Amino acid sequence: MNEKIIALRRELHRYPEVSNCEYKTTDRIINFIDEYKPDEVIRLGDKGVLFVFKGAEQGETMMFRCELDALPIKEISGLEYASVNEGVSHVCGHDGHMAIVAGLAQKISTDRPTKGKVILLFQPAEEVEQGACDVMENVNFKNNEPDYLFALHNIPGLTKNRIVLKNGSFASGSKGMTVQLTGKTSHAAEPQDGISPADAISQIISKLHVLRTDKTLFSDFILLTIIHIQLGEISFGTSPGYAEIRITLRAFENEDLTLLTSLCEKIVKEVANQEKLACEISYTEVFPATMNNNACVGIVEQAAKQNGLDVEYIKTPYKWSEDFGYYTEKFNACYFGLGSGYEQPQLHNPDFDFPDDIIETGINLFYTIYKSTLQS
């Protein structure tokens, strides 16, 4: 096992930082990879970084991406290298993903491209959707856009070192929908003198649940989940005049997510109009579906076979979302899974710890992709 990379992974695990606060994490990565003498180290603002290894000849650009951020979850693992930052932990495995890409830098440093470029992207703020958008808008990224882009995610509950692939949609698109309904407060003894959103909320929820079960409208899986409702204030003498509903919309296909969004808005606006309520709708944490390029999927499959790894093609995309979907809208890309074991706690569990014994598999697979595509 690569003890130096494992030590890096555990150091990153010990000092996690949440989305948009990954300053020291970025510094640690730069300090580590600097030893391997990339041709360029390009900052993406004050968080995020590109490491560029250049060939002598002009050619295509291949990029490998990993995530810098941790989650606002208290770790309960009891590990000697457990998080020292209260209420923050690497319980999604981004520490392991960073270690894999750092290990790739090790290998490339002694086997540099003869043509083209290979770029290692350490991206901030994946967990909150903002990271990929900010990276793609950064002029330093625009000047180094890839011809091919690859990334992986560890998958608990799957045989260790198994590679999970899918053509087309790999992970769901999703968005958070916030509905604000404004009427008029009144005395609770005289509700007819006000305009309460209470009945509107009941109608909206009922109609959304009917929409959720309609199998004729969508080409594939959709889901909407009511995650929060606020109605008025805790005052028994007041009939409410304001309400908010927060809903997560989710779909395997981007076209279905667009249709689902439109139909939900139609329901909300019709009910609000009937109930004489002002209505505002906004969105946050918008993730497009992660849509794999078939040719890139084939590249990963061949690399996995060259490494003697089992490959599984899943039939159904994952329900979770990933901001890698922003990259797949523009670039030839593949996002794939790396099995992390049946005993592995699930992602975002407070006792999660990335298994060190799959790091080498990730490094070797990325390296084979690099060799077979950029060096061929």
Rank of each mutant, 00 (worst) to 15 (best):
P16V: 06
I369K: 06
K47P: 00
K184E: 14
Y242V: 15
E253C: 04
F252V: 02
K166N: 00
G237L: 11
E35K: 10
N307Y: 03
D39L: 01
K4M: 08
F236Y: 11
V300K: 05
M177F: 02
S206M: 11
G362Y: 11
P124Y: 09
E244F: 01
N349P: 00
T182F: 03
C92A: 12
Y283M: 08
K215M: 10
H153L: 06
R14S: 12
A82N: 05
Q180S: 15
S262F: 02
I195E: 12
L44F: 12
I245T: 05
S282R: 10
E145L: 13
M63L: 14
G59L: 08
D356S: 15
G131F: 13
L68K: 09
S172E: 01
F64A: 07
L12V: 07
L71F: 06
L44P: 06
G362P: 04
G183C: 13
I267R: 02
S219H: 09
K166F: 00
H348Q: 11
A189M: 12
A272C: 07
S262Y: 08
L263Y: 03
I299K: 12
T114C: 05
S83T: 11
K166D: 00
T178F: 13
T290R: 02
I229H: 01
F354S: 12
Q192R: 08
F287S: 04
